[in-house]
Simulated assay, not measured.
Amino acid sequence: MSKTVYIVDDEESVIASLQNLLEAEGYAISAFTSSSDFLSEADYKTPGCLITDLNMPGFDGFDVSERLTERGYSIPTIFLTGFGTIPITVRAMKAGAFEFLTKPVMPDDLIKVVEDALALSEKSATLSQEKRLVTARYNSLTPREKELMKYIVRGLLNKQIAAEMGISEITAKVHKRRVLEKMMVRSVSEIVRMAERLNLIQDN
């Protein structure tokens, strides 16, 4: 199975160096000098990992990671930066970084991190695909339907949902049915499990 390493860095010399190193290890490389070009990709290959510079024009490395998560992708991300500080490192870890490395990176260190990141990607491929499907369904909901879904997850009855949203009980029932249809579930317990996958439970 082909393993893909995505590289996003606005410095072509950095891309060339990383590409030469990782291609020699047998990895397929997909490189971008623009974070927006990378984010415009229709899909990302699995197993795969991302190496991205933190400091770039437009979307920085944190923005890239955030937008991938919003779209339901769980790509192990390795952040690179020329200025490693404790606050930046902490922020990178909170952003879900697989690893945070300071330039210049030692070749052996990078190869080991990439190897581990791809192993994780391979293991979580099925879960990632399921999360993307659930995320796409959730994103198809209107803002009102997303609000109602949170009340469903909290276990509120139709009458209670209607009171919370300032709508009639009949309207609440109709919206609830649409939410269940769009999320492709038949029961409240199923939609609760989906909310857990989307990390929505903690928001309630």
Rank of each mutant, 00 (worst) to 15 (best):
V105L: 03
I170H: 12
K150V: 10
S128E: 15
T46V: 08
S36T: 14
E41N: 12
I75T: 13
M165R: 09
T135I: 03
L21D: 09
A28W: 06
L21W: 13
A16M: 13
D109E: 12
E122M: 03
K94N: 05
N139I: 01
E23C: 05
I191F: 04
E169Q: 14
A92N: 08
L133T: 15
S30N: 14
A97Y: 03
A92E: 00
V5R: 08
K159R: 14
V179S: 03
G72L: 01
F98I: 06
V153S: 06
D63H: 05
A162M: 06
K131F: 08
N55L: 06
E115D: 11
F98Y: 10
D116W: 01
F83P: 02
V174R: 15
R154F: 10
K131T: 12
Y151H: 14
Y6L: 03
S187Y: 09
E196Y: 06
L156D: 11
K45R: 13
L198A: 07
K103E: 05
I78A: 00
R197G: 02
V64N: 00
L118N: 05
H175N: 13
I15R: 12
G82Y: 08
R71S: 07
M165E: 04
E99G: 05
R193N: 08
F62I: 06
R144G: 07
H175Y: 12
P47A: 08
S128G: 08
T81A: 00
E11G: 09
V114N: 07
R144H: 15
P57T: 14
V185Q: 06
L54Q: 01
L141F: 01
F83K: 08
S74K: 15
P87Q: 00
R193T: 04
D53I: 02
L120I: 14
S17G: 13
V113M: 02
V153R: 01
L18G: 08
F59Y: 15
R193Y: 11
T85N: 08
K123R: 14
I51F: 00
E41C: 09
G26M: 06
D109Q: 15
E25W: 00
E164A: 13
S36H: 05
V179A: 01
E196W: 10
L180V: 04
N139W: 00
V179H: 00
M56S: 03
F38A: 13
N55I: 11
T4M: 13
A163I: 10
I201E: 07
K150Q: 11
I29N: 14
Q160I: 03
L68A: 07
L198T: 09
E12A: 14
E99F: 00
T33W: 02
L110K: 05
E115C: 05
D9K: 09
H175V: 10
N199T: 11
S121D: 04
K45W: 02
L80R: 02
D203M: 12
A16L: 11
L68P: 07
G96I: 06
